[in-house]
């Protein structure tokens, strides 16, 4: 069979089953759904993760080997990767290190937890906290009153902000206006987008299942 026909047949079979399954609450239907969706996907994910890590190592190693631009970062990346893998799988028992593959003991080990708690988590928090500054800079750009629509946007934003105003009476009045803005024009627009998304999802899923859309297979 042609190497492109088999994937399309598989996509059709599983796609059609998933569509039918939505209308079948019976246990047999649930069993098949859970078998594929809950059991197969993690298994595929685990194997794919190995591929992913291999890809990361290969790309970084090539960078170091050929001394490409900013290769030093790749050294740091690989050092971090292997260090955390080491402490995730090796546990210090007494004075020697034991390899623990079948248990999660490594994840509870002192070094692994410390690396995670004091390097990974603060790093994440730092990047996340940048969002506050980016929101400020993006707002500044968005709220410049260049034309009528931008002015309306600015006015709406001012109302939303002034609802927390400490000025007596103003906050309450703005709060009511802000609630109306959120519940009427904003919600109407959101629902329009949601309906469009729903139809688009069905159309895309159908095109993929029926083999009309083959772009994801590179058939551009």
């Amino acid at each position: 069979m042609h190497k492109r026909q088999l994937p399309f047949i598989l996509v059709f079979i599983f796609g059609a089953f998933m569509a039918v399954q939505y209308f079948m609450p019976h246990e047999s239907s649930e069993f098949i759904y859970e078998f594929f969706a809950l059991d197969w996907v993690p298994i595929i994910g685990i194997f794919a993760l190995a591929l992913g890590i291999w890809s990361l190592i290969k790309v970084s190693w090539d960078k170091i080997k050929h001394r490409r631009q900013d290769w030093q970062y790749s050294v740091v990346l690989l050092a971090g990767l292997f260090t955390i893998i080491f402490f995730g799988f090796f546990v210090k028992v007494g004075e020697h290190w034991e390899f623990r593959f079948m248990t999660s003991d490594g994840l509870q080990s002192y070094m692994f937890r410390h690396l995670f708690d004091y390097i990974v988590i603060p790093g994440q928090a730092t990047v996340f906290s940048l969002l506050a500054f980016y929101i400020a800079s993006a707002s500044y750009r968005a709220f410049r009153a260049r034309n009528l629509l931008a002015t309306l946007l600015l006015s709406a934003a001012l109302i939303m902000m002034l609802r927390f105003s400490p000025i007596p009476g103003l906050g309450e009045y703005m709060s009511k206006t802000a609630t109306w803005l959120l519940n009427v024009p904003n919600l109407a627009a959101k629902r329009a987008i949601i309906i469009g998304i729903g139809l688009g999802m069905v159309a895309t899923a159908m095109k993929v299942v029926l083999g009309i859309e083959r772009g994801y297979m590179g058939k551009g």
């Binding site: 994910g45 794919a48 190995a50 591929l51 994801y216 590179g218 551009g220």
Partner: peptide, 16 residues
């Protein structure tokens, strides 16, 4: 971000 997405993207680009 996702290894499965990576595998599919590789195939997509290769075919393209």
């Amino acid at each position: 971000y996702d290894p499965i997405v990576m595998s599919v993207a590789q195939e997509t680009i290769k075919s393209a």
